[in-house]
Nucleic acid binder design. Structure first.
Lengths: 339, 339
DNA sequence: TTGTACGCGTTATCAT
DNA sequence: ATGATAACGCGTACAA
């Protein structure tokens, strides 16, 4: 039941492998008769090209790699789904690797992908990633590269992300326009750029609305994909600031913890305290009240990143010039129950 | 910056490619001197073996494929994480494909993986999958195969799953022992075996405890990964059976919908109605009250499936006999707030 | 200790 | 319209 080769087909038909190869690929310079004979036999023998040989010959793997920080974070599932969608259209396969938010692992995974000679790589940088030599190595290897979500402005390649600062600004601005005056921000840790940007958007919105920035209203949730952090921070914040009337969190999961804490404290949402999340992860739909949040379009991000990657792979093949793109996808505010 | 080859190294050192190859692979019959020279130059030129050529030569891809029904379902993320864990240990890469619960797509993905000549495939069958020719084709291709979660008893290969029937039995038995008398079951659709098994476990637990089975207490949630279904079914059930005192659902997400509905109906959980879920997906930790549920060990399932797969790949390589395993991983009841 | 020669399966070039 | 030949890069049996 195994692996017919061009050679075998050729032998059985008493012709050359060249002819067989051409017949199978619909070259014009093969007679209909032999073409038919070849195709029939190929079908009968269940011939499929040996992709190892094809890869070697064409120097293409028809495979791309995706590196994400954590596998079981819903946002990345959405992104991945977008990537798959585009890959399927082109009969490309997708290898998935995780960096676990570790620079060292990220480096290793990149080396692995390069040594596998994937045609391109899509990556969201780990929180630890501060230098970019390993990223530049990808480009040096002439492998296409697209950064998404956690990008590095310093690297010369295409990027797909959202404008965290703007999105964050809009959310806080909205809270203020709705009459909230004392708005806490539960921010992410100091390292990743998006945590910083979201914080800056928060700050700017306050300032633009004439509300003085008060650093005691900012709480750091180090592991900001954990709702325990939000729970704890909410309890502290409510004690320290009894007149708090809104909380804007760096991520939905933190906001879910906040909702839980407020419920335990018998503080009504949104009447007493409004809560605004970030991400539109699917938990935001099942809380009580439902969570108002910034829609971060994961699926679209994945789709776009893959689309650009495949474009660049094609261009590279044709030795055409590549103009790197930096795409910022639109976010929007989702008004649900909590704010 | 590109792609040194054995040939180039050999040329630069004035030796043969054979010697270079051996030196790099630590063959014993190479002098320390040349070995060092080779290794140094290889490092300098940033040599990495061309895996296309290695693949062709060794007929191995050092890659496995995973096919799952849906990418953004948290249970599968956990499984995938387990698979990755094992793959990383062995420097294997993992290609991920989705079947979207469609038989046709599942077939296509399998063909793709086979044509890529992956060393093994791990798959959870789609809900539509009723015949198994495409699965048997994998074995016929001499490619290792492990089924998980949604398995097919008829296919002769290794399998990793849980005992849905037993797990379900235990949950319902627990509810009865706690004094619940009128227990509804929100089941999954009729096709996938696990929905059936969970239902059968429910039924058996009732019977063993002398509670007559009442089919009007069974509600079908077709799209049983959707909490809307649970919400709607709960409202109906509470109307039709005002004396209901427990609901056992096929999946956590359905249970989350149930909790929401009961909250809207001002029915207290677990006092009036106990709710028991299935899966231990992470939403079960953030509901109010927290959801009692069956722990379906996704990570372990993935780990085990991968472990078996890699074992079989190794055995096959050594042309040793393979004894297929059917593993049933232990589940346990997680007692949280809702029951 | 080192090198020669061949094959893995495909494809591209160039003759015929 | 067809085929001979070479090449992709590596690994290994065998010879030297």
């Amino acid at each position: 039941m195994n692996n017919a080769t061009l050679k075998q087909i050729a032998a059985q038909l008493g012709i050359s492998t060249t002819t067989v190869s051409k017949a199978l690929k619909n070259y014009t310079d093969i007679s209909e008769k032999t073409k038919k004979a070849v195709i029939d036999l190929a079908q009968e023998l269940n011939y499929t090209p040996n992709s190892f040989a094809v890869n070697l010959r064409t120097s293409e793997s028809k495979t791309i790699g995706v590196i994400i920080p954590t596998v079981d974070f819903h946002f990345f599932s959405k992104v991945f789904k977008g990537v798959l969608e585009e890959a399927e259209k082109r009969d490309y396969l997708v290898i998935v690797l995780r960096s676990n938010e570790k620079l060292e692992l990220e480096k290793k995974q990149i080396d692995l992908l390069l040594s596998k000679r994937v045609d391109g790589i899509i990556i969201s940088l780990s929180n630890e990633t501060g230098d970019f030599d390993h990223i530049k190595k990808v480009l040096a290897h002439n492998t296409s590269l697209v950064l998404f979500d956690k990008i590095a402005k310093l690297v010369n390649c295409s990027k797909v992300s959202i404008n965290d600062r703007k999105a964050s600004y809009e959310a806080v601005d909205y809270l203020i326009k709705k009459g909230r005056k004392k708005i806490a921000h539960f921010r992410g840790s100091y390292m990743p750029q998006n945590a910083i940007d979201r914080f800056l958007g928060y700050k700017k919105a306050l300032e633009d609305n004439g509300i003085p920035y008060d650093s005691s209203l900012v709480y750091v949730c180090d592991n900001f994909s954990d709702f325990e952090d939000g729970y704890a921070a909410a309890k502290t914040a409510c004690t320290e600031h009894p007149d708090l009337d809104a909380i804007f969190t760096v991520t939905d999961l933190v906001a879910v913890g906040v909702l839980k804490a407020l419920q335990d404290l018998a503080i009504s949402v949104p009447e007493q305290i409004a809560v605004f999340g970030f991400c539109n992860s699917f938990v935001s739909e099942i809380t009580t009240p439902k969570l108002s949040t910034v829609d971060q379009p994961g699926f679209e991000i994945g789709r776009k990143a893959a689309e650009i990657l495949f474009e660049e792979i094609q261009l590279k093949k044709k030795r055409q010039l590549i103009a790197y793109q930096s795409i910022e996808l639109e976010t929007s505010l989702l008004h649900r129950g909590s704010a």
